[in-house]
Nucleic acid binder design. Sequence first.
DNA 1: GCCTTTTATGCGGAATTCCGTATATTGACA
DNA 2: TGTCAATATACGGAATTCCGCATAAAAGGC
Lengths: 82, 82
Amino acid sequence: MDTLSRTPKQLGSALRRYRKQLGLSQTALSSRIGKRQATISTLESAGSATLDTLFAVLSALDLELSLRRRSKGVRARLEDIF
Amino acid sequence: MDTLSRTPKQLGSALRRYRKQLGLSQTALSSRIGKRQATISTLESAGSATLDTLFAVLSALDLELSLRRRSKGVRARLEDIF
DNA sequence: GCCTTTTATGCGGAATTCCGTATATTGACA
DNA sequence: TGTCAATATACGGAATTCCGCATAAAAGGC
């Protein structure tokens, strides 16, 4: 329900999973946002793209992006306990 | 604790806030990741950048990126009910 | 006000991304 | 195996980002 990415490649893979969940092909997605299928391909597999392209894809996949501090594992941080 | 972005500009603003929380100048941040201060400036204010630059900044600011489906508030969506 | 730091902007040039188009490769499946 | 959909890759060219460097403009302190 919540995918974490720390590299462009990881983000690309995550986007691919979300796209497939929606049953969309790269071509279908690309035409929705007015970009080329090849652009989606390199984004998903190499992680190379501009923020412009990224957010276009996000909105087409009905995704939102959130930032948070890196947590070191599952256990709560001290400041969350006391 | 968790910043949401739907546009490159929003993401830029969020990054600026996180950077300032760490007490870093654009110059300090840029030198940590081997990029120009001008690159940080345009990322933060215009939101234009590559994913490569974005993730370099994220790791320098100790941030992680997560994706999730857009939820329109608390209530479930129609297609989740029927 | 003045000074210092920080951020924004400008220049030419290199590198990358995106474009349209097209084709090659891969994968799924009857 | 053969066929079709899906994805990866290639080409030249346009647009954008990044570079180093430099300076202009803004913001903060004293």
